[in-house]
């Protein structure tokens, strides 16, 4: 099953084009143009991967990342950034981002990172599920 993706960036034309390109490749892509809206969407839906712009009006990407990880710890986040900034990259990793990608990016590189994020989330969900099953067996349920 292809990943459920949320693309968050204040450049509406960018998110729309990218979402369409991912949909053509059978990904379930949703868009958001603000941090606040992204958090609401993440709260209401089980996205596998969120692609999140670092610099946005209102809540910036790092704030949104912290909130996403708080409400959906297993959702993988890939930071999108127009310019390389080591400090922001390190801070994003500390806050739980899987990776970051520079804009403009090659679609193949992006897909490779999305698939890696999706696989990691699936694996973690399976581990949790297995642990829950063995826990129930241990407790004699």
């Amino acid at each position: 099953m292809k990943a459920k993706i949320l693309i968050v960036d204040d450049e509406e034309k960018f998110v729309n084009s990218l979402a369409e390109r991912l949909s053509i490749r059978d990904y379930d892509a949703t868009t958001s143009v603000s941090g606040q809206d992204a958090i609401e969407k993440v709260s209401g839906y089980n996205f596998d991967v969120v692609m999140l712009d670092v610099v946005m009006p209102g809540m910036d990407g790092l704030e949104v990342l912290r909130e996403i990880k708080r409400i959906k710890p297993l959702t993988e986040v890939i930071m999108l950034t127009a310019l390389p900034n080591v400090e922001i990259g390190v801070e994003a990793m500390k806050r739980g981002a899987l990776d970051y990608i520079l804009k403009p990016c090659e679609i193949e590189e992006l897909i490779s990172k999305i698939d890696r994020g999706h696989a990691r989330k699936t694996e973690q969900e399976e581990r949790i599920s297995a642990a829950e099953v063995s826990g129930r067996c241990y407790n004699g349920v």
């Binding site: 450049e11 960018f14 084009s17 990218l18 369409e20 390109r21 310019l83 403009p104 990016c105």
Partner: peptide, 28 residues
């Protein structure tokens, strides 16, 4: 310069995805 290069990159990213989409449409 940071602000201007950031905005230019955003514009380039839109161009790249739009051109990529044209390519995808032709492939389909």
């Amino acid at each position: 310069c940071i602000s201007i290069s950031h905005e230019t990159k955003n514009s380039l990213a839109i161009m790249k995805e739009s051109a990529g989409l044209v390519e995808d449409i032709y492939l389909m």
